[in-house]
Each structure stands twice: as C-alpha cells, then as structure tokens.
Design a protein around this nucleic acid. Structure first.
Lengths: 239, 239
DNA sequence: CAGTGGTCTAGACCACCTT
DNA sequence: AGGTGGTCTAGACCACTGC
C-alpha cells in the first residue's frame, strides 16, 4: 500500500496512520509492531520517515523501543501509570505507591457538569466509584471517580479493581490514558468525608478535579479527590 | 575544531557543547546561532547531526527555529513565561495574565530551609520580595520570593520590577528559567496575609512552594505563594 | 537570487538480541 | 549469522525569507 500525496509531511501522515491503528486496537499493548523496514516497505516510504514517526510516538508514551528487539505498544504498568499521574508524595520526596480501599459504587444519571466534562450525549448512565487511598498506612485521599457506562460497559460488575484503574481500562476496555488535566482548589473538608480522612470537617484540604484523556483525545473518565496535605504535597515539575 | 571521540553519541556531544555555550552566555537571548551548515563545518560533523542536537534543544525550549531565517536563542517574553509557569486561571478557562503589586523587599540571612532549597553555602544573603498578584482586578495571590544575592547581585536596587520576574532574570542576570518544581498544600490562610487576599484569616487557601531551575540545572530562586481558589484554580496538564 | 531551515531518501556502520 | 533499532553521513529537493 502506498500513501496518497497530501498536504502534510509524509512522516506526519505515517504518524497519523499508525496512531489510528493503535486507537483501533490493531496492535495490542505490549505487542511488537512490524520492523521499521517492514513498515517502510508496506507504506512505500523510506526507513528514515517511518523512524521519525515512530520516535514521535515514543515521545508521546505511545510506543517503546528496545534495541535489537523491536518496537512495542506501550503498556501501562502499576509503576508507569502511577508514577506519571499520581502526584501526592512527601515534601521533597520520591514517588509513592498508594494502597486503595473501595467504599462502594452506584449507577446513576450524570450531572450536567459531568455530561459536559465527559462530552456525554443522550441518556448514558455513569458509575460513581468511591475510594480511599492510603500513603504509609495513613488515609490521604477520598476520591470519587465517574465512569460512563458507554465507555466502560458493566465496569461496576468487576469483582476485583486494581490499584491503578488505568491498567483495568487498558486491559479490559482498550482505553489508554495518555494524559490528564487537573484543576486544584483548596477547600474546607466536607463533613461526609471527615471520617475517612481522619481529619475534622472543615480542615483545609486539596481538591483535585481530574479529566483523563484517551489516546484518541476524548475525556473518558473524570474524578474529584479530596487530599489531606498535612503530611503530603501535590508535586509537579513544569518543563 | 573537531570533536574528540567519546563514549556518547556525536549528536549528544554537540548538544552538550551548544548548551554549554548557551549557559556561558556565548549567545544572548533572541540572537541567531550560526547556520546548521556553519556549525557542522566548525564541529566537523554532518548537518544531520547538528540538526538532531538543535531539535533536541528546541524541544527543551532553549532555542527557536524560523524557517528561512535561522535558529535563535529562546527569549522569555511576558506571554511565553507566564503561559508556561503561571498556572492560576478560571475553572475550565484559558490562561490569564496577572497584574502585580510589590509590597516590599528586604535583605536577610537565608533560613536553613532556604539554604537547602537554593543550594547555598557560606554566608550569602537573600532578598525576600513580597508581592500581591491580581486576576480580573481581584487579589488572588500573595507571594514571597527568595532571591540569593550571589545569583542576583543588588536585585533589590532595581527601581522597576517587571510583571514576570523571569524576564528580568534573563535580561539583567543571564538566568534562563527552564523549569519549575511546585509542591502544593492546602492550608489555613495566615492572619498576616488575610488583608491582602481579602479573605478571612483561616480560609482554606492553596499554598504553592516553587523552586525555579536555571538552564544549568541549579535552583536559583524559590517562592511561597498563598493563592485564593475561591474563583480560580491551579490548572495543570500532565502528559 | 542566495541563504536558511524542513523533508525525504539511500546507504553505511554500530550495538544489541535471539537462534 | 541474521534481524532489530541507533547513529551518522551525503545529497536532493522544497518552502520560506530577505535582498
């Protein structure tokens, strides 16, 4: 197959085509892609052009390359997902892995706000999942996660939820979270969460509203987390 | 001049050398670098190798390239600095430009904490600068900035401080802030800042502790900001 | 028009991995 | 040994800029 001539650079066309295949699930996470030479031959371009497209995808965490072996679809592991998107840690400290306890979940119609954030139309229902996350054994976060059933069918029927939901999304639903948008407020801890966080109601807490974005650019999940920052901080390195 | 053979890839050696020149101020912000061909000839490598190094530096916001014109040292403008590092905005909103009022500044010895954060040794003094920043005319941030005099000699003698300090750092001191590390807490608004923010003492506010990092990797400034998140959020897109 | 960066190609050699 | 990605080179052509 040859690429039709277009207005965009060849490597960009190759990038778009390969990303499209990834989105469609043509290759599954941790699977190898064809070699650079094979792709170049298939698409009728030079190896260098394929390489430029592949390197672009690596920079976006869509692929991994291993010298002497091949190019692989990036896999969300417990470490990689949590390290990238879980920002709470000790001041001046390293990444930490939280433990998680699920408090419950329920189906309901989305609020207007949620419909907007998730780009929902029609009468799709959502699942509201309530979790507490612990750092060093202390409760640090109470989190409400909103999952559209149109994106995650019957996700509330899952018997076992992994510590990192993104792994479940990828393995069971073919959803790869590539970026998140966070908005942070300081607020007074609501009474209903006081027990779970072990803080008095009204204590200043960090509220993190997150939108999680799939490889195809859609917002597929949103969440609202109340974080105790008595002993922890939300750390971010802006480059 | 030819590059000595080493263990690192050529393009990395070129990258290191060009970055070193940038750090030393061999080229000033907004000045053009020699053309790719000229650099390639000077360093005894091919144009492609120089290009790879330059593109790497562009990706790090150290350089800008303009087709048909040349490659330029990146300049911190009001827009680019503030857009990149100023994270406070309206919920779901666009970037905003704050207005700034300086409340005062003083010289003193650094605290132990500040010495550690800024990597200070000996008996260097620091300047403590107090500012209020306004969004849409409302006071949104009270900020304490710590500037080592060893890095910024006589900075407290500046008659006019720009809205974006990073521009002053670059123009007057050759300091280019390339990244910042933020740590966020929720806390109760201290009494001494209540008036400036127009909130009751004890209100939940967002506290942002920032370390600003120079092109050479050193932390050259740190700050502590109390942000009202009644009407604004700290927004960040993690990729 | 000449000079610059941007794209694309083809080929060589290297380092790493598997068989 | 043969396949993979990683580096480096040389050369062609294009698009944009300024004289």
């Amino acid at each position: 197959m040859s690429l039709s001539k277009g207005f965009q650079p060849l490597y960009k066309q190759v990038y778009d085509l390969l990303t499209e295949r990834l989105v469609e699930g043509y290759w599954k996470p941790s699977e190898p892609l064809p070699s650079e030479m094979a792709l170049a031959a298939e698409l009728g371009v030079s190896q260098g052009t394929v390489r430029k497209a592949l390197n672009h995808m690596v920079a976006e965490n869509l692929l991994e390359r291993r010298q002497g072996k091949g190019t692989y679809v990036a896999e969300h592991t417990q470490e990689s997902s949590l390290f990238r998107f879980f920002r709470l840690r000790e001041p001046q400290g390293e990444s930490m892995i939280p433990e998680t306890e699920v408090l419950g979940s329920s189906r309901r119609a989305p609020t207007k706000e949620e419909r907007k954030k998730l780009g929902l139309e029609g009468k799709t229902q959502v699942v509201e999942l309530l979790r507490v996350r612990y750092l060093n054994g202390e409760p640090a976060i109470v989190e409400k996660v909103i999952q559209p059933l149109s994106v995650f069918p019957d996700i509330d029927k899952q018997t076992e939820l992994p510590n990192a939901l993104y792994i479940l999304y990828q393995e069971k639903y073919g959803i790869s979270i590539v970026s998140v948008k966070d908005e942070l407020h300081a607020t007074a801890l609501p009474k209903e969460y006081a027990k779970q966080l072990g803080l008095p109601a009204g204590s200043p807490v960090l509220m993190v509203e997150r939108q999680s974005i799939n490889i195809d650019g859609r917002v597929v999940e949103c969440s609202q987390a109340y974080c105790s920052t008595e002993n922890f901080v939300y750390a971010v390195h802006l480059k």
